[in-house]
Design a binder for these strands. Structure first.
Lengths: 346, 346
DNA sequence: CTGAAAGCGCTTACAG
DNA sequence: CTGAAAGCGCTTACAG
């Protein structure tokens, strides 16, 4: 085991690095933590030694010294699939960094304020805000007034004063629409998401714009309102598919609703994708549970949560060492995932 | 924050306890770790002091001393929903205990052996085996030959020499069948799961037995083979529902397949639950994604993963302090969750 | 059975 | 700008 550990290169200590670089452990620590007050010459030596020895800080030892960081997670009512993916990312990054995750649920508007207070009482050093709370102005305002490090995740319109991790929903939806157009679809239906969610707004706008750019006007009867739930998707799908003429494709604003569209289409004895192509958004597990599997835009939810936790921890450490911190806006890559639910128009 | 921390009682150290109990820190450590060689009298004093001060070991400090424990997770190809729920539990318990989780995927039979080797090479101190690998004899044999602490999760027939965490699938399926019978259903169809999985076997056997006990013979045409996937559920559902007469209820061996049965039923313009009642098993997120939401047996996957990690870590610590260790078999509680997809027979 | 000492790898003051 | 010292809370040998 010891052999394995040193093979994987995780066994060098701060002293090993110091010796190799010809400096004190303190200097290494300063370099590792990005503290000011190290000459460029020594910094370089240290950086080289770290690289050669493949040094990584021992987070357990650090935590023993500075105390365990607590990251609060304020979660509202997203889909179970989204929350799972998010938790996996947040928990794994917290584990890697030796931090703890504090969970706090809240539904209502007053609930938000109380949940934030509870998180602070329980010693949260920073707060993670996934949807839908990242789009709740009251919660965002309270958090920035408190001055506690905060990162909003997957909001399409991040506030300037707060760090955020997101994808470009507009671009993603544009790509998906253009893909459908490239498959020969010109008559495309759209299932909107919860109007309170900024990503839902941008995805819809992108769809309309891309259609117009291709010379197609989207008639009102091709658009149905959904709320991101499977159930709302069923209703929207019935609405779209009970028109005198049917679209050849439907773009649903998330995977849950796309799965519902598939179910309704099958109920009407339509073949997917031959009679109707269907696509979703997010690439949550439901996209590969239903059959045919869904073409969708993959939003890297797990990686976004990892990234958000990393930002938060960096923010805390900068703050503790008295450094300035400016909000970071991280844009993550999205991917078009083509599966069986779309194809050339019939 | 300091105030908050001491309020929540997390600030007492081993020295505080030692002082209060009138012993040395070493003695407290021994009591906390269950080491032998402490007089009953002192042990009692220490236990009382721990209780009064609400002492909890600082896992970061412990990890700094004994090294970070690495828990390996060997995952095959279960449903994404199952894996997410499992990961959330495993990661959160690892976080709580200051351990790291090492993920290793494997599909094929040779893949198993290589994946296990890789885990060991990367310094895994113990291994977690969820389905379907917990039912793969070759993998189980290799692990017990290696003598590395291992816990199988959610296998219905755990091997004697290895720790396991599971629910009683037979009892759970019996309860679900009896619930359907109590609702007036006597003609019930069944969608079997992957025959390689022991829980699938027991759930089916329990169904047959409970029906027989109620005086009902299950005809062969009421049973269809599935593989735990949504797609296999579609095929099985079409088979069951294309018979000259239809059952009034269908029991699917997991939620993914039950969701597929719902989709097929709707395709045939059957109302759920009025024309046909449908139930699943596991209570994964898909059970509350589809509409109507599924009646199911809740298997506490997240808690089972927590429990398994805790067992594993206890095992490692006993092993390191030279204590004997006997495999533990933990039976977790299951619950019947009644939702809209079942009701009184039409 | 029991404890004083040393140390895990890191960081916080404190001197230069 | 730089480092020697002390300490985070715990545990591993080592003496009694």
């Amino acid at each position: 085991m010891k052999a394995a550990r040193s093979e994987s290169g995780a066994s060098a200590t701060i002293w090993d690095v110091a010796k190799r670089a010809g400096v004190s452990a303190m200097t290494v620590s300063r370099v590792v933590n990005g503290s000011a007050g190290v000459s460029e010459k020594k910094r370089e030596k240290v950086v080289r030694a770290i690289d050669e020895l493949n040094y990584q800080v021992n987070v357990a030892a650090r935590a023993a010294r500075i105390g365990t960081l607590r990251v609060g997670l304020l979660y509202g009512n997203p889909s179970a699939a989204f929350l799972s993916a998010f938790l996996v990312g947040a928990l794994s990054e917290c584990g890697r960094q030796g931090a703890h995750l504090l969970l706090e649920h809240c539904d209502t508007l007053q609930g938000q304020r109380q949940a934030i207070d509870r998180l602070i009482e329980n010693g949260a050093d920073a707060i993670l805000v996934p949807p839908p709370l990242c789009d709740a102005p009251a919660a965002i305002r309270q958090l920035s007034e408190l001055g506690i490090p905060t990162v909003a995740v997957a909001t399409a319109r991040p506030s300037h004063g707060m760090s955020a991790v997101r994808i470009d929903d507009y671009e993603g939806a544009t790509m998906l629409t253009n893909y459908l157009l490239s498959q020969g679809h010109t008559d495309i239906g759209f299932v909107k998401g919860d109007p309170e969610h900024t990503p839902a707004q941008l995805r819809y706008q992108a769809f309309i714009d891309a259609m117009r750019a291709a010379g197609h006007v989207v008639p009102a009867e091709r658009v149905a309102q959904g709320m991101f739930t499977y159930r709302s998707g069923l209703r929207a799908a019935r609405e779209l598919l009970s028109q005198p003429t049917r679209p050849t494709a439907i773009f649903a604003c998330n995977d849950d609703m796309a799965a519902a569209v598939v179910a309704v289409a099958h109920g009407l004895h339509l073949r997917v994708p031959d009679d109707i192509a269907i696509c979703g958004f997010d690439d949550t597990p439901v996209a590969t549970t239903v059959w045919p599997e869904l073409t969708t835009i993959r939003q890297p939810i797990t990686e976004m949560a990892c990234s958000a936790v990393a930002l938060l921890i960096e923010h805390i450490r900068l703050q503790r060492t008295g450094h300035a911190h400016t909000p970071q806006h991280r844009l993550m890559p999205y991917t078009l995932v083509v599966r069986e639910s779309t194809g050339a128009a019939g």
